[in-house]
């Protein structure tokens, strides 16, 4: 097993049983489902975006490894995972240079310099955040096949951010849960994300503690500080199903290298990411700031572990593992 994979599994409950191949194999298996749905909704254009993004990530890692004189292990699936995550968070009609830049940044500026597969910052989240800063218009424009969508080219995030309650009243919750609204090509279907969550519950139940904290904090925020004039449940569903929030809760917050070791630290870490995300949704300039929140949460994780009770013990356990 490569060194990077060993680093990746540091801090895991059973490091001897969890390999990078198995871990990211599971994630890639889960990601296949939203990919198929994206192709169903947006046609071959979605597949092209996925191919370009994954190809850029793998090629960047291969070039970087060649420059550094290291061997590139194809079995280290993290680049594939990062490229696929980035592609699924983008709109299907995005120009091809956007996924290329995002994936290349994720691998070349985050993953490789920060320790390879065990990078303490989630590469996919950082790559998407970089692309959001650089290509804000391209990333938050959902015009491809917009005529087939419930609310046209307007995404839920844009409607919530603009306080457009009248148009949101037309939204059927089942359509929203089914992903029949404009948005990122692979993250809109809430029901599918729940199915992925159930699979993750069977495979890595402890990782879902962070997801629970994340979604709990987001739901609580949506209930207390709603952005539409619907009922509490409607507000929560609209907030959770808009943008890439559910996708991030399943695939990005549960990243093995960035999760704290202790169980309740994971809940607090997830809640911190959720609060940051909702605060930025309410006051920030971006329609979907979840990746910024996760990158900030990654950076704050060591501080969180050091100030929370049990941090020292957890760190010793991690060191022993």
């Amino acid at each position: 097993m490569p060194d990077s994979a060993t680093k990746r599994t540091e801090g895991a409950q059973k490091p001897s049983h969890v390999t990078a191949l198995r871990l990211f194999g599971d994630y890639l298996l889960m990601l296949l489902v939203p990919t198929v749905l994206a192709v169903y909704y947006y046609g071959l254009r979605a597949l092209a975006v996925v191919g370009v993004s994954v190809g850029a990530a793998v090629l960047t890692e291969a070039i970087f490894s060649a420059v550094l004189g290291r061997s590139y292990y194809v079995r280290d699936l993290t680049s594939l995972f990062s490229g696929l995550c980035i592609a699924l968070m983008l709109p299907a009609g995005v120009p091809f240079y956007v996924p290329v830049a995002a994936s290349a940044f994720a691998v070349a500026a985050v993953k490789m310099p920060l320790g390879g597969s065990g990078a303490p910052i989630m590469p996919a989240a950082a790559g998407f955040a970089f692309a959001a800063v650089c290509f804000r218009t391209e990333i938050f424009t959902y015009t491809l096949r917009a005529e087939q969508k419930l609310l046209g080219a307007q995404s839920l995030g844009a409607l919530l951010g603009g306080g457009n309650a009248m148009r949101l009243n037309a939204a059927n919750l089942m359509d929203v849960l089914g992903g029949n609204v404009a948005g990122p090509m692979g993250t809109g279907c809430g029901l599918l994300m729940l199915a992925c969550g159930v699979y993750l519950l069977m495979r890595r139940p402890r990782a879902l503690l962070a997801t629970a904290g994340f979604l709990g904090a987001c739901a609580l925020w949506a209930a207390i500080l709603p952005r539409s004039n619907g009922g509490v449940l409607t507000n929560i569903v609209l907030e959770l199903c808009s943008g890439s929030l559910l996708f991030a809760a399943i695939f990005l917050v549960t990243d093995h290298a960035t999760l704290p070791a202790a169980r309740w630290h994971r809940v607090v870490y997830g809640a911190l990411c959720g609060v940051l995300c909702m605060a930025m949704r309410r006051s920030g300039v971006f329609e979907e700031p979840v990746c910024f929140a996760i990158v900030l949460g990654n950076a704050l994780r060591p501080v969180l572990e050091s100030i929370l009770p049990g941090g020292g013990q957890a760190q010793r356990k991690e060191a022993r593992a």
Partner: peptide, 23 residues
Amino acid sequence: LPFTLKGLSLPFGCFILFGFLAA
């Protein structure tokens, strides 16, 4: 140019460039 990376004009982009140059 067909596209630009506006992030590099921001301070964080400069830090990243410094990192690569230092390496």
